[in-house]
Amino acid sequence: MDVSVRKKIIRFENGEKREQTAEVAVEYPLTIYVNKQELVTIVCTPEYLEDLIIGFLTSEGVIRGISDIDNIEIIEATGHAYVTANFVNQFNAKYRSKRYITSCCGKSRENFYFQSDASLLESYNETEIFIHPKQIFERMDEFENSSATFHQTGGVHNAGLTTPDGLICSRMDIGRHNALDKIYGYCLKNEIPVLDKIVIFSGRISSEILVKTAKLGSGIILSRSAPTELAINMAEELGITTVGFIRSGTMNVYTNGNRILMD
C-alpha cells in the first residue's frame, strides 16, 4: 500500500503563488481483533503492519510476547487484522471494549498507558552500552538519511534501532508511538536482543516515548528534539540515558551521562 500520495496545492513563495503538487502522508485505520473480539482501531501508516500489531500488543501488556501469538491475518483492503492468541493477559481484559487510537500525540493513548507499566518496567542502571559523541552524530546522520518519507511529506515520525557502529533498522509512522511499536515488533519477530542497542527517535521524548523505550529494553535514547520533565524524571529513576537536540555537532545529555564517552 502507498504510504504517501500526491495532492494539488497552491504554494506561496517570495510574494508569488503557483499551483504544484506535494507529497502527503497517508492515514490508515487498522482494526485489531484478538480471538475474534474487537480490541482497538489504530490510525497508522500502512506498512510493517504485522510488526506494529506484535509490538503494540506486547508493549501494552495484552500478550506477554510473540510466543503467545498463533496466527495473524491482515486484510489490507478492509483495514482489519485478526490475531489468534494462545494467551491473553486477563489484567488487560478491560481493553477488549473497543478503543480508537488516532495518529495525534496526546490523550488518544491514555487508556493504554500507565495501566500496567509499573510491573513491566525495569531499571537499566547496569546496562553496559556506551557511545562516543562522534558516533552519536554519525548515527543521527545515518538515521536521517534513511527517513525518505519524512523528507518528502514532513508528516511522519521516525524511530530506529542502532548500535554505536551502525543503524539496524528504522520505521516511520504518522503516530510516534506506532513507529516505536514497529521497532519492538521487528525485534520480537527476529529475536534481536535490545539491552545492548540504542533507540533513536525523530521527535520529542515524552513520558510515553520513554515508557516505550523502557519496554523495548534499551538503556539509551537519542533524539533531535528534547525530553519533557516527566520523561527526564522517569529516565533518572530507571537509569536510561537521554540525549536530545542532536544537531550540527551539538547535543544535550539530560540523564545518565556515564554512557557517553566524553574522552
Rank of each mutant, 00 (worst) to 15 (best):
K215N: 13
R109F: 11
E23F: 09
I232A: 10
S116V: 11
S103Y: 14
L195A: 12
Y28M: 12
I136C: 05
K8I: 10
A93H: 11
L216A: 05
F130D: 03
N252D: 15
G55S: 09
T45E: 13
L161R: 01
M234P: 01
D51A: 07
C187H: 07
Y254N: 08
S248N: 14
K36N: 15
D141F: 01
H177N: 15
K107S: 14
L52N: 03
I174Q: 04
H132A: 11
E16R: 14
Q115E: 13
N14D: 14
Y186S: 04
V211D: 06
L30C: 11
E236I: 03
L30V: 09
I101M: 10
N178K: 00
E73R: 15
I183Y: 05
L222C: 04
D68M: 07
P46Q: 03
D2C: 04
N233A: 09
A179K: 03
T228P: 02
N86L: 02
R64V: 03
A179N: 07
F245Y: 11
I174T: 15
L161T: 04
D70N: 14
A25S: 13
L52V: 02
E142T: 14
I168S: 07
N190K: 14
Q90W: 06
N252E: 13
K94H: 14
A93T: 08
Y100F: 13
I209L: 13
R96W: 09
C169Q: 07
E38Y: 00
L222W: 05
A85R: 04
V243Q: 11
